[in-house]
Design a protein around this nucleic acid. Structure first.
Lengths: 151, 151
DNA sequence: GTAATTGCTAAACCTCACTTTAGGTCAAGG
DNA sequence: CCTTGACCTAAAGTGAGGTTTAGCAATTAC
């Protein structure tokens, strides 16, 4: 129990509320990179708490793990990220979030227009058009909420 | 090609942009209930175009199929839904949507507060709290975007 | 020192929302 | 009549995001 040996996976799980299995899964997906102690057990930095926190928040916002990884990959490799580093990625994150809120609000406003007519008609309803366009992309995974597939 | 024999699944697919397989899947999930012609092929009402349209729109908003089914189940059983019926479910739908936008906006505002400090700290960050609460629900499926699991 | 925890890996399993495949049937046009 | 295209079912496959299981090793608590 020396002070500088890092956190165990169980400790991380307790502090984040994540399941141990989820943390291991994030490692497998390249979102977090613990080292190993002499016995082969994972040890984590305190900075990893922040990474996990970011992952959980971004998931609440509806981002996929590859998208989140892309954001986290912008953090510096060789050193512990500074506040400035986190501020930078929070900002890029906020832009994506703003776009999502805008889309949702626009769709809601279209829905308001439709409540009066009760139509949802394929020919006339303002709500139908964005849906139609998604359909025209052809078969394959249909993306949600106006987002493009993960980069 | 008599006038009143209903639409084939292919016709529905063309008019909605959905895949035929998706429509059959929705039937299996109880979201739509075609009848069969003498040869065993599915035949659909024109009103089913509206149901499918609603499904597609609701999915854009991030609702799951069970949630959408719950809304559609409120439509009358014995007759073709009227505009009033659709208006009623659009309104209940809008309320759910409003809640979603509110949550997202609140989270975004919290993020704004965090950009200044760059923290995302588990102890202090305003963003952490909602995440933490989700974690406290214990193991099992973690719900997204502040929604409760489908009824 | 030993028992209970906690951690390890690999592989199987799960839900959601579908698509694809395989093998066969139905309907419409020439 | 016969071919072509649309349709049928059941079952398996997909990919995201994990959890569960099995069997074993390391750590911690007493």
């Amino acid at each position: 129990m020396a002070v500088n040996e890092g956190l165990s996976i169980g400790a991380l799980a307790k502090r984040t509320g994540l399941a141990v299995s989820a943390i291991r899964y994030y490692e497998a997906q390249g979102l977090i990179a613990p080292w190993r102690n002499a016995g082969g057990q994972r040890r984590f930095d305190r900075a990893d708490l922040r990474r996990l926190s970011f992952i959980m928040i971004a998931q609440q916002f509806g981002f996929t793990l590859p998208q989140i990884k892309a954001e986290l990959d912008q953090l510096p490799g060789g050193r512990t990220p500074t506040k400035t580093d986190w501020t930078r990625i929070s900002q890029s994150f906020r832009a994506a979030l703003d776009a999502r809120i805008t889309t949702l609000t626009k769709l809601r406003d279209n829905l308001d227009g439709c409540i009066g007519c009760g139509c949802l008609s394929l020919e006339a309803c303002a709500l139908y058009n964005p849906v139609d366009r998604a359909g025209e992309k052809g078969p394959g995974p249909r993306y949600l909420m106006g987002d493009e597939p993960a980069a």
